[in-house]
Nucleic acid binder design. Sequence first.
RNA 1: GGCCCGUUCGUCUAGGGGUUAGGACACGUCCCUUUCACGGAUGAAACACGGGUUCGAUUCCCGUACGGGCUACCA
Length: 505
Amino acid sequence: MEKRVRVRFAPSPTGGLHMGGVRTALFNYLFAKRHGGDFILRIEDTDQTRFVEGAEQYIIDALKWCGISPNEGVGFGDGPHKPYRQSERKASGIYKKYADKLIASGHAYYAFDTSEELDEMRKRLEAAKVVAPQYNAITRQNMRNSITLSAEEVQKLLAEGKPYVVRLNVPRNEEIRFNDIIRGWVVVNSAQVDDKVLLKSDGMPTYHLAHIVDDIEMQISHAVRGEEWLPSAPGHILIYRYLGLENDMPKLAHLPLILNPDGNGKISKRESRFPVFPLSWKDPREATPFIGYKESGYFPEAFVNVLALLGWNPGTNEEIFSLEEIAKVFDLERVHKSGAKFDPEKAKWFNQQYLRKHSDKELAALFKPTLIEKGYGNLSEQFIEDYCRLVKEKAQFVHEFWQYGSFILEEPTSYDEKVMAKKWNADVKALFVKLVDKFTALQKWDAHELHECFAAATTELGKLDMQVMRVLVTGVAGGPQLFDVMALIGKEKTLERFKTAFSKN
RNA sequence: GGCCCGUUCGUCUAGGGGUUAGGACACGUCCCUUUCACGGAUGAAACACGGGUUCGAUUCCCGUACGGGCUACCA
């Protein structure tokens, strides 16, 4: 029988969760939803030296903003496998129990080497032109561990409370193969795998041991993680095997990385002209915060949509998807092998698509704070909605509403020079003065009436250039439908603007 | 350096032994529009290279190049 699908996102709280991490979480979430399974958030905080204040809460907040909610885990309610923080799970002695099992069967051993001794070993190997110095079947012979030391000596060191680590006893030359859902068969010789530390000298497990123990205990069915884990997967296979759990281990899927748009390397928070964090992230160790997608004006739906299509696609030409829609068709088999460069331009386009899906009322609510900030806190709801309706067709972000429509609220202080130089003269002015007289006589002031009036005037008086009129009223050469703009500005103010324009030009 | 993974327009990608190699973003042109924008149409733009296998390879295999990842008592 197929195992129930249970997947986990297991970040370590060592900093803000960037978009690569969010994408990993997203694919796990989507996979779980697709198969009616469970999605778990587990915090891998086994490295106490790298703990960063606020990082865990940030991870939770970021997932919430994205709409990627785990159904078990830290910050999302306990489930049957609590606790979900490895530092807390350690209290039960679970990791040590598994490590002891490996020691008992001879698949792991104690190592007493100090970090200085480790350094010396590496230097010695480098001097001997060994390209990849590692603690392995060969080098362990010259180190201080329970393989080279006598049983009595080991007992003595242990009894004295000397610090030690537990290492995996990796065979010298053995083929390790595993079938990755995304990449197919991957084959590695154990000579390439080092004797990984399983238990650190502070008693904490390393990632390698901890995630395996937890995945087994939490009955995880699929381990979906970034490609950076691919090289350590063979070691993990060995651990499962030596524990007698190879048949119970989760299926592996290594996701391609998200790459920097301008070339090389995986996406990084520095040297990037676009946000890499979903929410603004202030690292307590650094002076300046990193701005997030939320604060840059992105809708979470757009952000998540972009991410979902990085390394995966449904095989159709559709691109705009809600999380629910993607969850219906998502499949790990369709995930790419190769890394994808993130395209900030396309991300903006996605945001525009979602912007247009919002009602004027919703947009008005989002835009209102900017208006208040600019000193227009007393506008009616209707006016703000109308403003948003006019301005939204060109905008990609709500915060652009101001730059695309501020002339509706603020009188022009100058007039587009190019247009005026080309199209303005005394004759044109005389014509517009007559037009404004007709506008003045209008009983009803709306876009339709204005249009009619303008059309009639054109036949009567001759050609009147609309762009010139636009500049007269707004000062600028571009913007939303002019008659709509004039209607919204209102009769009195529009006529005033014409008068001012005539006096200044 | 070693090991592992990858390589279709500038970017995200569809496709897959025989196709005019399709779509999207960005870009150009045109149409719509007396303004502006949306929209529509259209154009330029890709199978990294070299060997095989095959009647035929962009598609399968092997090399090369290039790119990326990993190489800690970090995850």
